[in-house]
């Protein structure tokens, strides 16, 4: 078990380095760099602009700069934003709590919507209601998240005026719409997992036994069946949570929500390579680590999987 965890952690290193190299190179190939953004509109000669570039060390070869960046990163120094001159780590972690809050809130929405819907579908398998529920869940997967966000905004903020339109505030109300938008996007996968996991369990003999000895139907479903269907459901919820740490940029933009996604988008628009790279590397690392934790928890919860790892078998 420990060997597996250590191996997985070691495998993270090339992934993070590769991702940073990829982003660093692509960002540096872009037309226009951060200097052209800073000096835009300023009355400067080409020589002066070149001097700024040289002072920032941007005229050196790409690989030299990447090497320097990588060594800094390995020491925990992600450099400074070229625009605000603040350390990248500080900028990232002032925004990060907001993203965590949004990811957790949307996971709660996800759980509250999809588990009951999945159980309902499984219990009425093949019926019209089951099909309707599945199409509804599929709708969540088929909508552009930003569009759903905009539509909810029109309905609840402009027409009904129940909620604030931007997620910038610190109060509870401002997070509702971003969380619901993101949660509905996650719902499709979780609902389907819940349904198929419940279908598997509902056929088991011990449920017939429970019913035969007179356990009320509600208790059969919620206690006996759901508990055993929980492992795949929790894995899906965990995976979705991990993705939410990295994939909410567009939703954050629609609601002007001050998370890391918006920080990244702004950084890319300003050609602030250091900040953009730092954000992507940090977000990627966090996503991959959360996925790893989900995997390990999965092994701990399910004795069968644990036994497989103990034998040294590969996860397949």
């Amino acid at each position: 078990m420990w060997r597996y965890i250590v191996k997985r952690i070691l495998m993270l290193i090339p992934v993070v380095i590769g991702a940073s190299l990829l982003v660093f190179c692509v960002m540096n190939l872009s037309k226009g760099d951060v200097v052209s953004v800073i000096t835009a509109g300023a009355d400067m000669t080409n020589e002066q602009i070149e001097a700024v570039r040289e002072a920032m060390g941007l005229n050196r070869p790409l690989l030299v700069r990447y090497g320097e960046y990588l060594f800094g990163m390995l020491r925990g120094d992600f450099g400074k934003s070229a625009i605000s001159n603040e350390p990248v780590l500080k900028l990232f972690f002032t925004r990060f709590p907001a993203t965590v809050k949004l990811a957790i809130a949307s996971s709660i929405v996800n759980i509250v919507l999809s588990i009951p819907l999945g159980i309902f579908s499984a219990r009425h398998q093949g019926s019209v209601a089951d099909n309707a529920a599945m199409v509804f869940a599929l709708m969540g997967l088929s909508m552009p998240a930003f569009w759903l966000g905009l539509m909810l905004m029109v309905l609840f903020c402009v027409n009904l005026q129940w909620l604030p339109a931007t997620g910038g505030g610190t109060d509870f109300k401002s997070i509702i719409l971003p969380a619901v938008t993101m949660g509905i996007g996650m719902m499709a996968t979780t609902t389907r997992t819940t349904r198929s996991a419940m279908l598997d369990v509902l056929r088991q003999d011990y449920l017939r036994t429970a019913r035969a000895k007179g356990v009320p139907e509600k208790k059969v479903i919620n206690l006996h069946a759901l508990k055993n269907a929980m492992i795949p459901i929790l894995t899906t919820v965990g995976t979705q949570l991990a993705k939410a740490f990295g994939g909410g940029a567009v939703i954050e933009m629609v609601f002007a929500y001050p998370g890391v996604g918006k920080l990244l988008l702004d950084a890319i628009n300003n050609r602030d390579t250091t900040l953009a790279c730092g954000c992507i590397v940090l977000q990627t690392t966090i996503t991959v680590v959360v996925l790893l934790i989900v995997d390990i928890l999965y092994a701990f919860v399910d004795p069968r999987v644990k036994a497989q790892y103990a034998k040294g078998g590969k996860k397949k």
Partner: peptide, 18 residues
């Protein structure tokens, strides 16, 4: 693994802006 680790939309944003 490396390509997959980077969220898809972000990857798209970086590539298109480049």
């Amino acid at each position: 693994d490396i390509i997959q680790a980077i969220p898809a939309v972000m990857m798209g944003i970086v590539i298109v802006s480049a």
